[in-house]
Write a protein that binds this DNA or RNA. Structure first.
Lengths: 227, 227
DNA sequence: TCTCAATCAAGAGCACCGCTCACAATTTAG
DNA sequence: CTAAATTGTGAGCGGTGCTCTTGATTGAGA
């Protein structure tokens, strides 16, 4: 099984990619709720049942789209942050947070897919959780760099709040005091809280200039986290 | 039209209520995506087309559920905050934020309906925006009380970020410096950012004790906002 | 080279969905 | 008492996800 290089396998891979491309187009156009396997089959000019040779269910297709969205966002944020001079911690933080918001505004349906209401029976497979970690890893990397510049006592702060696993996977994190990490996660939460409210319309009527509002957020969090 | 007190009108009102009750039950059980007019009609033992005499479309039913959820949450938070001694500003803040989280955890599907991905073609009618304002109004009320205790210069801070309308609708807000109001909205955003991440599973792997994490959030925001 | 198993495409079909419509029954208003 | 408005019904349309049978194609081993 899976000889890996037959002409058959290549064709399969290509059709799978075509389905995924069309699915992404439909997602961007109509959102996750408007995505239908039948209509994908129609535009690809194949029978509706043929789709199931490539994706066992609609949920499986959705999972692929979720993975794709996480990686798209992750790559975007990584690139934006990497483009900034390493010593400019503040600039790196601003770049990462701004890139997150910009991506969300450019791909609102993809954003909603991963940070909005979860799809009913969905359980994240292992492959998605590493993709989902890319943005927080970027942010935490800036925190670590900041802690290296301003060394502090790592043992301070409350304990038991953080998952022990997170300190294992990112070992340099041990250098950062737990209270600082928690504040980093708080900023991460607030980032997506603000973006979600902006995208989902919960700011209309209170915040008029969402741009300035967001700028204030990312500058203040930079002040609080990187000193 | 709408004589308001005929036996016919009463029956209509009651059937409407029955539909709404069953819809809420389905929402709580299966979430918004699993809500179907036909299955409601089935359990109410009426023909599926009869439902449309009471709700013109699925979206209209959903709108009613959204309104209901906003009011349920609003009433819960108002009651919790009102139960605290008026002079205990910190206690009022803690009560309001904790009640919000507790409600969300008790009614995750209703929470997702109003603060998750918006339903595709939905545009909030006027009736919902006042219901949606109940929680922020409670929070802002605490801010106003705090500003009354510690009077400050209202003219300080940046301008143009806030919607002018919000200062008109809540006139006492003019006593609160704009920077303080913005920080209040920030806390409001972070509140729902944290709750959403907790409910939607984005904290697994990083925050182990969500309870303690949330407590830290609401205590710190109380410190920052009420002094 | 032939054979046989695996793969794939297609179509019919099932159960469900939102929604519309014509029609009959009933109630209300004038 | 009659006419209009309201309500319930069942059939039906087009759509969905998904399954199954059937038939064609392909590729690897004897």
């Amino acid at each position: 099984m899976a000889t890996g290089r037959g002409a058959r396998a290549i064709a399969r891979q290509q059709i799978t990619a075509e389905i995924l491309t069309e699915a992404k187009a439909q997602l961007a156009r109509d959102g996750a709720s408007g995505l239908s396997l039948r209509s994908i089959a129609r535009t690809l000019e194949m029978s509706s049942s043929a789709i199931y040779r490539y994706f066992a269910s609609r949920d499986e297709l959705l999972t692929a789209l979720i993975l794709d969205a996480y990686n798209d966002l992750g790559a975007t944020v990584e690139a934006a942050e990497a483009a900034v001079e390493r010593s400019d911690l503040r600039g790196r933080w601003l770049a990462a947070t701004r890139a997150t918001r910009a991506w969300a505004r450019a791909e609102p349906h993809a954003y909603a897919l991963i940070y909005g209401t979860p799809v009913p029976n969905y359980v994240a497979p292992q492959s998605t959780i590493s993709a989902a970690s890319r943005v927080p890893i970027v942010l935490v990397g800036i925190l670590i760099a900041a802690a290296r510049e301003h060394p502090m006592d790592p043992s301070s702060g409350p304990t038991g709040v953080l998952d022990p696993g997170v300190l294992d996977t990112i070992d340099q994190l041990a250098q950062v005091p737990e209270a600082k990490i928690i504040h980093g996660i708080r900023a991460w939460n607030e980032l997506f809280g603000i973006i979600s409210f902006e995208l989902f319309g919960h700011l209309v009527g209170s915040v008029a200039d969402t741009e300035a509002y967001f700028e204030q957020f990312c500058h203040e969090t930079a002040d609080r986290l990187l000193t």
